[in-house]
Amino acid sequence: MSAEVWILGGTGRSGRAVAAELARRGVPTVLVGRDESRLAAAAGPGGARTMVAASLDDAAAQIRRQRPEVVVNTIGPFTATAGVVADACPGHYLDLANDVAAVGATLARHDAAVAAGRTLITGAGFGVTATESVVVKLCEGRPRPLRVRVDMVPSIAMEAGVLGDALAATILDGLPGVEGGGRFQGRRIVDGRLAPARVGGDPMRLTLPDGTGVTTASMPLGELLAAQRASGARHVVAASSEVPSGGVARALMPVVLPLLNWRALREFARRRLAAVRVAAAGRPREHSWGHAVVTWADGEVREGWLRLGDAQDVTGAVPAEAAGRLLAGAGRPGAYTPAALFGAELAEACGGSYLLPVS
């Protein structure tokens, strides 16, 4: 196999962020995409090698033929792309998935990856890494807790442009094939099993360590599975500051979301969402945060935070750091989320700082 890292979706914002971090680490990189001119612009003079692939199947065929050691998949929706790319990889695979369906499907490949001697990493972006890392730190050297709640609070500078088909499809993809509830319901973990939950439920007003406030609410995120696996807790809730949490939004969601089961309406919504134009904007706050509250059966409660920079920069740094470690032979066969494989210090290597209770 060639000691290179291939980035699928190399012209997108996340792909470019990963490529920049790999270049900073001196790792040989190949940008893979559909548009030759955009690839050349993303690579820059004397930058990464580029490869044009007209489709996902074409990219998979090139992976089988050229056998890169590590492939980073940044192309959503990951429910559609992760399996195709992971199956094509002769070496290690990473993706940026952050939904229950895609993260769960990749983690379910653990035994097959062990048998093949390959490492699969899913959730190698801001949300999963920021939250599960805090859970790992809070649970170090302690018995299995009873309850865990994780909250992600990203701060990200917005680039001007349209939302795009891939992101729109990811947002509207729902939870096909995920046990525990309907396609357009949320999820939580109750008694160790996925169970239905209201999207935008469990609102919580958090005071961030910098003194500012934010409200988070539940969302069926990959953090849910990562936090449960990191802690072994029987009850888990995952929440985000990006979920509308006002009273009107909470009242409308149970009415609006079931309508997405109608395919024609869902396709209409996807097209309209993909065409939404986003204006350039600065970060809403200085830091991004991962947060967790862990409760044990004896009543002990521990709360912790992970302070990070721009969430998009983190989403570039995590897969780059993980890919570099895989190239160095630091991984192990199986399917994992980032902190489950490399420990809580991975986030520190990506610029994070923990704020934890004194033991």
Rank of each mutant, 00 (worst) to 15 (best):
A3I: 12
E4M: 07
G9I: 08
T11C: 05
G12H: 01
S14M: 09
A17M: 04
A17K: 01
A19H: 00
A20E: 15
R24Y: 07
V27R: 03
P28W: 02
P28T: 07
R34D: 12
R34C: 14
D35H: 11
D35Q: 09
E36P: 12
G44W: 00
G44M: 02
P45S: 10
R49L: 13
R49C: 06
A53M: 10
S55Q: 07
D58F: 01
D58M: 09
Q62L: 15
Q62P: 02
T79Y: 03
A80P: 07
A80F: 11
A82L: 06
A82H: 02
V85C: 06
H92P: 02
H92I: 06
D95S: 11
A97I: 04
A97V: 08
V103W: 01
G104A: 13
H110L: 10
A116E: 14
T119F: 00
L120Q: 02
T122L: 05
G123Q: 07
C139Q: 02
C139I: 04
P143E: 11
V148H: 05
D151L: 09
D151C: 13
M152C: 06
P154R: 10
S155W: 13
V162T: 15
G164V: 08
D165F: 00
L167H: 04
T170G: 03
T170P: 03
G174V: 12
G174E: 07
L175A: 08
G180S: 05
F184K: 02
F184S: 03
G186P: 12
V190C: 14
L194M: 07
A195M: 10
A195E: 14
D202V: 10
P203D: 10
T207R: 15
G213C: 14
V214M: 08
T215Y: 08
M219R: 08
E223C: 13
A227I: 05
A227S: 09
R229S: 04
R229G: 04
V236D: 07
A238H: 06
A239N: 11
S240A: 15
G246S: 09
G247M: 14
V248Q: 12
P254Y: 00
W262V: 15
A264Y: 09
R266T: 08
E267G: 07
A269Y: 05
R272Q: 15
A274N: 12
A275E: 15
A275M: 09
V276S: 15
V276C: 12
V276H: 13
A279M: 13
G282Y: 11
R283T: 15
P284K: 04
P284D: 09
R285F: 02
V293H: 01
W296H: 09
A297K: 10
D298Y: 00
G299A: 08
G304E: 05
G309L: 07
Q312V: 11
V314N: 05
G316C: 10
P319L: 04
A322W: 01
L327M: 06
L327V: 10
G331H: 03
P333Q: 05
P338M: 06
P338V: 04
A339M: 01
L341K: 02
F342S: 03
A349W: 00
G352Q: 02
L355D: 09
S359R: 15
